[in-house]
Design a protein around this nucleic acid. Structure first.
Length: 546
RNA sequence: GGCCCGUUGGUCAAGUGGCCUAAGACUCCGGCCUCUCACGCCGGCAACACGGGUUCGAAUCCCGUACGGGUCACCA
């Protein structure tokens, strides 16, 4: 038995499976040609960053056409773990219509044949591959303490060498078997390190699907594979899991690019074929003069939950994100109205290699468009869902009389040029408030060109002739008829041509009425509003406005 | 500092050597429509980071500079 084999047995006596056993348990997936296997692999902190949503969305859309998108929990760092994290992650995704077909579930179970999907439950698998690496002389135990590592770094600094555990500096790289055995017997803690055979002179080349060709020096670090507690580092788990779970495309933030040499080295040492990499740029925001990544600590809009709370329609957020991912998405949407987003021919290569600035104005515009083409019924349902959780006042108002609520939402909806007033559900209460006596605050801010007496005259004259049975034309005729006795003109064009001849025009009349009925100068179509308000409310407001 | 990535209007971006007098969308500003507002329509402001090459010809290819970002853990 070789020293390596001896060492492997010494380190992992309890591991009796071989990599071949696992290969048999997790065979290549039987999928249609070209189908992609993607995964979302968060650590269970429970916090969903906008970037996480962005990546998951890409994962999920890439796995269409017979592929698989699964959720894997990377809980190799117990310090960061949070209760209920998986549930929160799944909720965060589902709120935007993203549902992994496979992987960890909220109830602690899992879907799929390639599990467990929680890294803390895969210890034996990692150790099996670690053992095989030791047998091949590609990994070894290192007994350095934190202090020793600090000392090493200090020494490298004074020597002008690059810091790190590598080459000549790797103290346990060639430790004799006897010493290892002695330390092991003494119960000294150790980590397992890769015995790197890389050379700085040589390059690795990775064809990234968004960044293109990336060339970097080979890895020379004897990086940690297994931590002192026997749990793998991200790098080692990535190689083992993505191979065994047969991931074809790894979509992740581009902060991982720097680790590419390490990952390539690991896939190579383990004898695996590396997946395709899709390194996406972070979503940025401006800060002072420059731009920076959306920060979990400083920016509330970095959290996916923010959009739910603010009441952004999920389709709007997804559309915006998709626009950032593939800028032709908006054009496609316009050309294919009503089609499900899953029909969009998403393309990794159309993703921008540089980071996009988050643009709230654009998001709002998209959301307004999205909501404007919904039916009143749909809007009502969404609003109720949102209000149930975030706005009791609105929820009470809307549930008291659903028909009335839907009638309000129907104004200028379902026509060729629908109104676009609403960007978020949280704006709905303000939008509809004057339809409800409970929420209506009567106030009358006199427009500049109208006197209090003039306004009063208009209101009383109108109250005298108002007829709730008028159709729209009759209604407008009645308002126009009010003009001349009061020194105004019903003809706006005429007014514009000879403003000196009149005190105002019919627009001023309707503005005064509008003000009395709604408390604001700008609203949707007044006639529709009055029909909904009904005779009693109209007359009461007309009479009490001033 | 080493290594890597990026850089077209205020923002997202099209563009893969001649079709670029550089598209479209958002924002902003005019105007039209109009009972107000919104919608819609018409129009406008506004960009290839800089310097060298290669080429008949460069936003596009190469080199350098500047600026921005990332990364150098027993975190992911």
């Amino acid at each position: 038995m070789s020293d390596y084999a001896l060492l492997a047995e010494l380190l992992f006596p309890h591991i009796d499976k071989t990599p071949e056993d696992y290969e048999a348990v997790y065979p290549p997936r039987n999928l249609p040609e070209g189908a992609k296997v993607t995964r979302f692999a968060p650590s269970p902190t429970g916090f969903m960053h906008l970037g996480n949503l962005f990546v998951s969305m890409i994962d999920s859309i890439a796995a269409r056409d017979g592929g698989v998108f699964y959720l894997r929990i990377e809980d190799t760092d117990k310090k960061r773990e949070v209760e209920d994290a998986v549930e929160r992650i799944l909720h965060g995704l589902a709120a935007f219509g993203i549902v992994p077909q496979e992987g960890e579930q909220a109830d602690g179970g899992a879907l799929g044949d390639y599990g467990p999907y929680r890294q803390s439950q895969r210890k034996d698998i990692y150790q099996c591959y670690a053992k095989s690496l030791v047998e091949k002389g590609l990994a070894y135990p290192c007994f350095c303490t934190e202090e020793e590592l600090n000392y090493l770094r200090a020494k490298q600094e004074t020597a002008g060498a690059n810091p790190g555990y590598y080459g000549e500096w790797a103290v346990f790289r060639n430790a004799p078997l006897g010493e290892v055995r002695r330390r092991l017997r003494a119960g000294e803690p150790y980590v397992l390190r890769l015995r790197s055979d890389g050379s700085e002179e040589k390059k690795i080349v990775v064809e990234d699907l968004v960044k293109g060709k990336i060339e970097m020096p080979e890895n020379i670090m004897d990086l940690v594979l297994l931590k002192a507690d026997g749990i793998p580092t991200y790098h080692f788990a990535h190689a083992v899991d993505d191979h065994l779970m047969r991931t074809t495309h790894v979509v992740r933030g581009d902060e991982w690019i720097a680790s590419l040499p390490v990952h390539i080295a690991l896939f190579c040492a383990l004898g695996f074929k590396a997946p395709k990499y899709v390194h996406v740029s972070p979503i940025m925001k401006t800060d002072g003069g420059g731009k920076r990544k959306l920060s979990k600590r400083k920016d509330p809009e970095a959290a996916v939950s923010y959009y739910a709370e603010q009441g952004y329609p999920k389709e709007g957020v997804v559309t915006y994100l998709l626009t950032l991912a593939n800028s032709n998405f908006e054009d496609w949407l316009r050309a294919n109205p009503g089609k499900a987003v899953t029909g969009f021919p998403f393309n990794f290569k159309k993703m921008s290699p540089s980071g996009a600035l988050f643009d709230l104005a654009k998001l709002n515009d998209i959301c307004k468009n999205v909501i404007s083409v919904m039916t009143a019924e749909q809007v009502y349902d969404y609003v109720m869902d949102w209000a149930a959780q975030f706005d009791k006042t609105l929820h009470d108002l809307f549930s008291a009389d659903p028909c009335y609520a839907k009638a309000i939402l129907s104004i200028d909806r379902g026509v060729k040029k629908p109104r676009k007033d609403i960007a978020t559900w949280s704006q709905v209460l303000d939008y509809v408030s004057y339809f409800y006596d409970e929420a209506f605050r009567q106030r009358f801010d006199l427009p500049e060109n109208i006197s209090a007496a003039g306004a009063k005259a208009i209101l009383s004259a109108y109250a005298a002739v108002y007829d709730e049975n008028d159709d729209k034309d009759a209604w407008f005729e009645r308002i126009k008829a009010l003009c001349e006795p009061l020194g105004l003109t019903p003809n706006v064009k005429e007014f514009k041509a000879n403003p000196q001849n009149y005190k105002g025009h019919v627009g001023d009349v309707s503005t005064v009425i509008r003000l009395a009925l709604t408390g604001r100068e700008n609203t949707p179509d007044l006639y529709s509003i009055m029909r909904l308000l009904g005779k009693d409310r109209v007359l009461r407001r007309l009479n009490t406005a001033l």
